[in-house]
């Protein structure tokens, strides 16, 4: 079964700042900074929400193993959902 991750668009205001995407959660006031691969994943979520498909793309584009990629994506997704910026469907 596909793992789907959706941005919670209403949760934050965000802006690009010195090469980072900085987001503030509108309810908690906590902020979150995305850059590098994290920012890449966040931007890919605009095109699709299937995490396995995103993992396949990352393995191809970054030349990393599926196992390594899956662990990194899982960690990132946990941080993102815990902060309230995205939710697993």
């Amino acid at each position: 079964m596909a793992r789907l991750l959706r941005k919670v668009e209403s949760s934050n205001c965000a802006t690009e700042m010195d090469g980072e995407l900085v987001m503030i959660h509108v309810d908690t006031g906590k902020f979150f900074s995305l850059k590098g691969v994290g920012l890449d994943i966040w931007q890919r979520l605009d095109a699709q929400s299937d995490l396995d498909a995103i993992c396949d793309e990352l393995c191809r584009d970054y030349g990393i193993s599926a196992d390594e990629c899956s662990k990194a994506v899982d960690t990132f997704v946990s941080q993102l959902t815990a902060a309230g910026f995205a939710e697993l469907a």
Binding site: M17, D18, G19, E20, V22, F31, F32, S33, K35
Partner: peptide
Amino acid sequence: ITGARKLA
């Protein structure tokens, strides 16, 4: 100081 550090 760049990025999110500015916000802090």
